[in-house]
Design a protein around this nucleic acid. Sequence first.
DNA 1: TAGATTGTTAATCGATTAACAATC
DNA 2: TAGATTGTTAATCGATTAACAATC
Lengths: 213, 213
Amino acid sequence: MAEREISQAVISRLPRYFRYLGELRDREVERISSQELSRLMHVTASQIRQDFNHFGGFGQQGYGYNVEYLYQEISKILGLDKTHHLIIIGAGNLGQALANYMNFQRRGFIFTGIFDINPALFDRQIRGIRVRPMEEMTDFIRQNNVDIAVLTIPKSEAVAVARKLTDVGIKAIWNFAHVDLDVPEEVQVENVHLSDSLMRLSYLIGRYESRQE
Amino acid sequence: MAEREISQAVISRLPRYFRYLGELRDREVERISSQELSRLMHVTASQIRQDFNHFGGFGQQGYGYNVEYLYQEISKILGLDKTHHLIIIGAGNLGQALANYMNFQRRGFIFTGIFDINPALFDRQIRGIRVRPMEEMTDFIRQNNVDIAVLTIPKSEAVAVARKLTDVGIKAIWNFAHVDLDVPEEVQVENVHLSDSLMRLSYLIGRYESRQE
DNA sequence: TAGATTGTTAATCGATTAACAATC
DNA sequence: TAGATTGTTAATCGATTAACAATC
């Protein structure tokens, strides 16, 4: 691909654009200008135009952007037009919560399997899929065309499991374990460090309170 | 406070520093230089020194940083030396998962209550705390000195609940609902938009694959 | 004292915003 | 055509990195 590298900042904003455009679309809004979107999303119109232009001209002078078209284009950029098969490693509370969160299915993320080391959970059904023992994981990935592994296990086990996943050729890891995974560059990783997020919130509380003094 | 404003970028890095320092501390490492930490964390030593200096000189020339001291200082900056009482709004899978995630308790975030609109869940116990009906929420917040509300309800309800929380004077909202909350500036908000995160991962997969062509 | 390493200033890089010509 | 609004270049702002004097 000849496209120049898109910055992390732009990528991080795409899902939010996608969400707003989806809402406009649901309200059957046909077109929107960068200025209107700017007011709605509380970002500058200039940034919106710059962002969209990273991927080619989606708009039209004097008209603005066609909501449906832009929505579909961003959907493609995000790869939501493709189907991904995902498994969840760790059938604890969080793993089960994610398995039950059906919005992902809607976007083409197909929940295919869930694994745990705890025998008490084996054969329990979650959304019609039984919990399998960890030993079966690698074979399952090979046989079921799995792209994404969701790690919801303690950090003590996460590193070893990530290695296994890498060896079996997983494409991506959605990592909820509180540890930085060290994987080769062909494996994509997205971290969700919930405690980091809660700490940021704690910081914000403290900062606000100290300002009030 | 006379301290100049700390950038969002620096704040976002603090929890990660905190995590690494905690690990070093557990391994009873006494001191560390910015260069060693740089190698460990894969960030530049220069950035580490700049970041720490936003909050005052934690280090010592020719010596480096004392791990225990730095750990404690960052802990204070993040407000982890204070106790926060939190309630969870929405006793679904995610709400229950968060209620059961005990690591938060360890950091001073005390799980105090959980609420839902579904009567089938009332009086179910989660970590010894019963699920209460939503109607009791505002009184409960007033009576129990609640600082943080965790929103794990659908976005259709989130905006209205956020308003109630604001009215009753909540300090902070940890928002898992997939909507941007519009609250006054005295209410701190930290969003965890899981589907945004999954979309970013999806983008990364697509980008990598298109590069391979 | 010599060596190490911070704290901090200056240089660079990248991202955001402003401005406006192009064009629908 | 006139008005609106994009696409895009230039200006600004802020964050990161480099460099080095201060100092333990």
